[in-house]
């Protein structure tokens, strides 16, 4: 019974929020992935520096000009270097970055498998 009540209230909640929804904004997505050069710990989206504000306007302009996400990134990377992107991407510089954690995961899994399965076979 309790669970049922809970379900109803959750569904109610969802309706409550979906009314307020907007489609995800590509410009926001892009500026969140750009790092500000003035306040270097923040994204362009979060920052209010002059530089960040100009980048926001520029991204908007470029989108209007028909640039896609990747073209905008390439354009900015060309001007300011790879550093400006928060997403390091999968390039020759970042093979280790992406693969090392995955390798660790597989390695850990292997250790556990050995501990668990072996006994089963013995039985």
């Amino acid at each position: 019974m309790n669970i049922l009540k809970f379900l109803i209230s959750i569904i109610f909640l969802i309706n409550f929020f979906s009314s307020d929804l907007k489609a995800r904004n590509l410009e926001t997505e892009i500026t969140k992935n750009l790092r500000c050069l003035i306040c270097q710990g923040q994204s362009v989206y979060d920052s209010d520096s002059e530089f960040a504000n100009s980048i926001k306007i520029l991204v908007e302009k470029k989108l209007d000009d028909g640039f896609n996400e990747k073209q905008i990134y390439d354009y900015l990377k060309d001007k300011y270097g790879d550093w400006i992107l928060y997403d390091p991407g999968f390039t020759k510089n970042t093979y280790f970055l992406w693969l090392l954690p995955i390798l660790m995961f597989l390695f850990g899994g292997a250790i556990i498998l050995r501990k668990v399965i072996l006994k089963k076979k013995k039985l």
Partner: peptide, 14 residues
């Protein structure tokens, strides 16, 4: 001596 940023997209994806 290459400089890159590793930010939220990396951590979210992994």
């Amino acid at each position: 001596s290459q400089k890159i940023s590793v930010g939220p997209p990396f951590f979210n994806k992994l």
